[in-house]
Amino acid sequence: MSTRHILLGLLASGPSHGYDLKRRHDERFPQARPLAYGQVYTTLQRLVRDGLAEIDGTDADGGPERTLYRATPDGSAELARWAAGIAPPAPFVTNEIFAKVVVAILSGGDPAAYLRAQRAAHMARMRELTAVKTAPGADLATVLSADYALTHLDADLRWMTTTAARLTHLTAEVDAA
């Protein structure tokens, strides 16, 4: 997840100031962790330092004076390169659920009980997301982000279901031996 590139992407539609960028980010990525204003500010400064963005002037607009930023041609090129590059498909498996199940097995805990509880929590979250997605008047960004989250939770659930089945199988084999 690259905050630099997301800000560059938001700047692509025209000059914007820091607070506006944060607001638009939270709007476009509704299910993502909200950006801290300080993070927006430092990222913009780094973009200017690297020649990918530049100061466009200031905008008073009745309130306090705010600096407007815009993307440089280098910045647009960098954005295009990043957007077209593929993301490495899951190079490392580092997931908390996976880790907890493995640790439970190693330490002689009860992975099945953990998986049941985790499933309930996943399903609760999926119901929330489904409600958000199907609420009348939900905008496209909301639907897309809910879809994304739902699909990933579903993938987790499938892995958890398979794992639970494997554990039952394994126990049965051990008992039989």
Binding site: R119, M126, R127, T130, T151, R158
Partner: peptide, 13 residues
Amino acid sequence: DAQTAAYADREVR
């Protein structure tokens, strides 16, 4: 299907 089940208020397995 979990995504279908997510339309429900409640789930039993």
